[in-house]
């Protein structure tokens, strides 16, 4: 590559001017981002504040500053469904962790084969993978339900978890395929020349290199499973098996908005683990190959 004349040429700037300029530029960035953040999170802040208002005032006195603070929504919400809300948090955690493991395991294997190995039907398989996410859930759910029902798996977590272990989340398969394809071929070719078979290559070369994709898969699987409503609603009939999203939906009646306070309070409670998880996981997005370097 050749050097071109450019507006900002760092190599030629005197050091002092550079830091000053960078600092003011950062300040500007912070300012812009700050305003943007406010816009983005306003609705959530409103929800958080509302959770501390008496239920019937949420919609009638919608201001951001609550007149009287109360923890009633949390107390009532926590016990609203005959058992402590922690039961649903644990259920959701179980399903989410199971799904993460399933997706990481099955999608990584599948993606590697589809992205790197040469075999007939490869293109067809890729197309089939994509095609399987093109049909909307609502026409698939009944045949699927009949299938799991005949296996006697209704009211267990199997219908939620088995598909994850069988690489049916094409989104993640394809995500990983795309990431693997950004990894230079030279790397695994070198491993092949060293005598590594496809399994060793996958395990020692590709898997460590696709870490950002694995982290992304982990984050999304966790959040999407946590928020998923329709599938757990249909398969989990017994209240003790409910996940958080199904439990939350039981708090408001679609025919009236009674229980909004509890809904907000418990939404907030159920948002915390997800937020904590994201805050933790996103760090791993930073410490990818960029810091360890290409080996």
């Amino acid at each position: 590559m050749t050097t071109a004349t450019a507006p900002i040429d760092s190599t030629r700037s005197p050091a002092g001017a550079l830091t000053r300029r960078r600092r003011s530029r950062d300040l500007l960035k912070h300012l812009g981002l700050g305003v943007f953040v406010l816009l983005m999170v306003y609705p959530l802040v409103w929800m958080a504040v509302s959770a501390f208002k008496p239920g019937h005032l949420i919609l009638t006195q919608p201001g951001l500053v609550p007149r009287d603070l109360t923890f009633d929504n949390f107390v009532q919400g926590w016990n609203a469904l005959n058992r402590p809300f922690s039961v649903f948090l644990v259920n959701s955690l179980l399903v989410s962790v199971g799904s993460i493991v399933g997706n990481l395991f099955s999608c990584a294997l599948t993606a590697y084969a589809l992205a790197r190995l040469e075999f007939r039907m490869r293109k067809v398989y890729l197309a089939v993978t994509l095609a399987s996410v093109m049909l909307p859930l609502h026409v698939l759910v009944i045949p699927q339900y009949i299938f799991f029902s005949q296996l006697g798996m209704v009211n267990t977590y199997f219908p939620l978890l088995i598909p994850k272990f069988l690489a049916t989340d094409a989104f993640f398969v394809y995500l990983m395929v795309q990431f693997i394809r950004t990894i230079p071929r030279d790397l695994d070719r070198a491993a092949w020349i060293d005598g590594s078979g496809p399994f060793r290559t996958f395990w020692y070369v590709i898997l460590p290199l696709m870490r950002p994709a694995l982290v992304t898969t982990t984050i999304f699987t966790f959040i999407w499973t946590w928020n998923d409503f329709f599938v757990p609603l249909i398969y989990l009939t017994s209240p003790k098996m409910f996940t958080v999203s199904v439990a939350l939906s039981s708090m408001v009646d679609s025919q009236s908005q009674d229980g909004v306070g509890m809904l907000f309070a418990m939404s907030l409670v159920s948002l915390l683990p997800v937020l904590a998880f994201f805050a933790f996981a996103q760090k791993h997005l930073i410490r990818g190959i960029a810091t360890t370097g290409l080996k």
């Binding site: 294997l109 599948t110 589809l114 190995l117 040469e118 069988l166």
Partner: peptide
Amino acid sequence: GLAAHIFLIPWQLGLLLV
């Protein structure tokens, strides 16, 4: 090709069953 089909066992099962 052989390796690919081993890697693809979960996916193929999923395709077939789910």
